[in-house]
Nucleic acid binder design. Structure first.
Lengths: 242, 242
DNA sequence: GCAATAGTGTCTTTCAGACAGTATTAA
DNA sequence: TTAATACTGTCTGAAAGACACTATTGC
């Protein structure tokens, strides 16, 4: 083989001559609704695990997908109608046994988006649904998708300790209390609001819109904020307690 | 398709009926020698990138590899003769263009090991070599392996800020000065030895062997340490300055 | 003795936790 | 006014940085 030119090698190369493995991309899409963390599940229309709920995702389309991120976004867009504002690769899982069709590898991403942006699309179909993450984790899901949700949650938890990444699960404008409550839900513990606000001021990745929330309710009307670009990359030097 | 039973579907399923993509596992193996960080490169014996230096790794063997980690370890063992004591998945990279044979995905790992454990095996062959990481990054490597080394280094750098993971690049017993010097090389900056030692004491993941180093040289003879099990999982709450 | 390396004592600085206090709103 | 929510002031405490100090070795 090494006697050939590279051109001749490539001309004669056919992937189907080899025992190869399945490769898929699956995403755990999170959002926040009523102070709870939700995740998007889709009902499988094909074997294997026909009719089971699982993660949005699937095979790489070697014609249409230019890379893994594009593949993740395509599958998410097919389900939600939009490209989520935050997408991060979690890890890859591959083994001989995770898929009955054969050796299979999946690249897991997690994504964050505002719930309102896609709620109408999803409510109109019955094979896609938002479920509270805790509830999703109690279901029997397709493949090892339950572990993948757990891994994504674990990653999101770490990020909540030293970054403001969870902000991408909120709508375009939000209050600091909403953001704090989201971090608290992700971490499963309460945070001192003074500490939280101090960190946000230090990070300088959010900006006040100048407006106050129009939500009716008792108490002082909170200021509205939006994220500055690059907020996802900010990293605090110290973690919150855990 | 959804009319069939799962059994019938699986019986008729043949991966070669579909356009699929290549999947490989590559590892960036680091070690420390004379206070410098080295990485292991292998010379390719096949097309594409014939005779280029690149990372140890390759295709998943659907018969022999049970999962991705096993695949990474197998390829590393083929080159070094041993299974490295630390192996961590970095990320996956996949695109239409990264391999001339077609759509290709690679799962990148990085591994740490003591140099001495495998030096004789490697010195006896001419298609494997340890190179200073800085030097490897200046070469023209196969595929996108240069970026993969950069990503692995970046991950290792983060770990050096909040963990003692780099210790796995040292021999079984080592001095705290050696460990500190390694962290300094990875981070590219000096560390206050008082801070470093305080953190180590707090972490409680190293233990004194009771011996002193037998290395001849000026100055006080340093105490020898070894890692306790579970040291890889310890995470400091605060980062070192960067 | 000196130079070099290992290791310690301790003061300063930074920033999270705790929690009481003030501000603004609806009823 | 009261209750609720938003937000601030300020003290404490934990741990990193700075750096001078002591300890042990080879020459």
């Amino acid at each position: 083989m090494s006697q050939q030119t590279e051109q001749a090698y490539l001309a004669s190369y056919n992937i189907k001559d080899y025992d190869t493995c399945l490769t898929t991309v699956d995403s755990v899409l999170f959002t926040v609704l009523n102070g709870e963390l939700y995740t998007l599940l889709v009902r499988r229309a094909n074997h294997p695990y026909l009719a089971y709920w699982g993660l949005p995702g699937g095979f790489i389309d070697v014609q249409r997908d230019v890379d893994l991120t594009a593949c993740a976004n395509r599958h998410l867009a097919e389900k939600t109608g939009i490209i989520p504002p935050y997408l991060e690769q979690v890890c890859s899982t591959g083994s001989k046994t995770r898929d009955p069709r054969g050796w299979s590898t999946t690249v897991t991403y997690y994504a964050l988006m505002a719930h309102i942006q896609c709620t109408t699309d999803i409510d109109s179909v019955d094979d896609v649904q938002w479920l509270p993450a805790t509830q999703a984790l109690q279901m029997e899901l397709a493949f090892d998708h339950k572990q993948m949700i757990e891994q994504a949650l674990e990653r999101l938890k770490q990020k909540a300790l030293y970054s403001l990444v969870p902000v991408y699960a909120l709508p375009e404008t939000f209050t600091l209390s909403e953001l704090q409550q989201l971090h608290e839900v992700i971490l499963g513990k309460s945070i001192q609001s003074k500490s939280f606000r101090r960190r946000i001021e230090l990070a300088n990745v959010l900006e006040e819109t100048g407006e106050l929330s129009t939500q009716k309710g008792k108490g002082k009307r909170p200021a509205l904020y939006r994220v500055k670009t690059g907020a996802a990359d900010y990293r605090f030097m110290r973690n919150l307690e855990h």
